[in-house]
Design a binder for these strands. Structure first.
Lengths: 225, 225
DNA sequence: GGTATAAGTAACTGATTGGTCACATGACTG
DNA sequence: CAGTCATGTGACCAATCAGTTACTTATACC
């Protein structure tokens, strides 16, 4: 056991004071990034503190600036990470083997559960929009990755139209936006909403009820009469 | 004409240097509040600068603190203002004279147009949620006002159920949340979304198309088969 | 018209914060 | 095994910012 307060995180985590300098550049980099995701998502860009990120990553501020340049570029790296993460998860859904209706339900369910499991994504998406999508725009990775993200919904919708389960006149972009919206808004604004509607919104039952309602909503939109 | 750079804004706007101090307490207060709404909505709570608010209100920082106490209380006043504003506008809709279906369409249309006309509302709602609805909770005005806000949708829904146009099993809270969500998300996150979907989302045509889609969505949810 | 007081200003302060510097150390290379 | 450079540390700096103080001026009241 470590003699003092050091909680011994990670694999070997040599105490930086006694057995100095573990020397793990890429691990340090990813620790900084993880800490930055947490800090930025909790406090927003302006509210986030670089020192706090460095402390959370158990690293000197110096290295943070060495790896990421400045606060803004670090934020950009954070945005890139969370977007590529969700796109990767989305891509591994393997919807082709499901009938269109089930595939669409799976897509809604995925977004819902992902937003719940990764509240930092919605928070950061939100913050990035407050900043006018500045970092999104200037990121090559994101510009390229975004192309194939919408492709998923488009494919499912097209298959459903082809076999007659879905209406032929649905704009996939509108559908996708609505799918994200009904998940995002509920989770993002539950704090005020729970007061406005006088109801607990984040209990397990409430979350399941909302998922069911959202699935119903999406199906109501696309299902042929 | 004023001899120097002072642009002489407002009704009499005596130059503070020569014909000093117009002495308008309540007007000063409302000017501070307006400036605060703009500043907080554009930059968030942490990003907003008290000095900037004071400058924008053309007033010394001193008065700002005299009237509102501190930055946090000023933010609370801002939240109270924008919420009471939207509730007031909503209440003046006079939906009772419309058949349920039209009333619901009017409700969706109202939210859509209000969010477009008052982007500061969505931004501030968002910010308040990032802060855990702290100010909302501690505001008597808001706790009381929120009660009758949901009443509107409930009434319309109940009337529609009574006359058979609407399904009887719709949860008004879920419906209300969805109605707000599909308007809010589109307008709030258009910056990133326009890149993800490679489409202009804020043109006049795009906005009208979205409103039409949103109305369709809400009707698809509630309309009896 | 004179005086008390609210409305207003400008300069200041203590604390915070993004960013940098001088310097230490350990791993890899020849 | 010696030199070198990436990895890392803690102290430091200049700027910013929320909040305050000392002081000035217009209005209201008598």
């Amino acid at each position: 056991m470590a003699p003092d307060s050091k909680p011994a995180t990670g694999v070997d985590s040599a105490d930086p004071r006694s057995a100095r300098h573990p020397r793990r550049p890429d691990l340090s980099r990813s620790r900084i990034l993880d800490a930055a995701v947490a800090e930025f998502s909790q406090k927003g860009f302006a509210g986030a503190r670089v020192d706090e990120i460095a402390a959370q990553a158990q690293i000197g501020k110096r290295m943070l600036y060495q790896y990421f340049g400045n606060k803004g570029q670090l934020f950009q790296a954070v945005i890139e990470k969370v977007y590529t993460d969700i796109w990767e998860a989305e891509a591994s859904l393997d919807l082709q083997n499901l009938p269109p209706r089930d595939a669409l339900v799976a897509l809604v369910t995925f977004v819902w559960r992902y937003y719940i499991a990764h509240p930092e994504f919605t928070k950061l998406l939100n913050e990035e929009n407050m900043l006018g999508a500045r970092h999104f725009r200037s990121s090559k990775v994101l510009r390229e990755g975004s192309v194939k993200s919408q492709f998923l919904t488009e494919q499912v919708l097209a298959r459903g139209v082809a076999d007659g389960t879905f209406r032929p006149d649905i704009d996939p972009v509108q559908l996708c936006l609505t799918k994200n919206a009904i998940c995002y808004y509920y989770l993002m604004n539950h704090a005020t909403s729970s007061h406005v509607y006088g109801r607990k919104l984040m209990t397990r039952e409430a979350l399941e009820a909302r998922l069911a309602f959202n699935i119903e909503t999406i199906l109501a939109i696309v299902l042929a009469k």
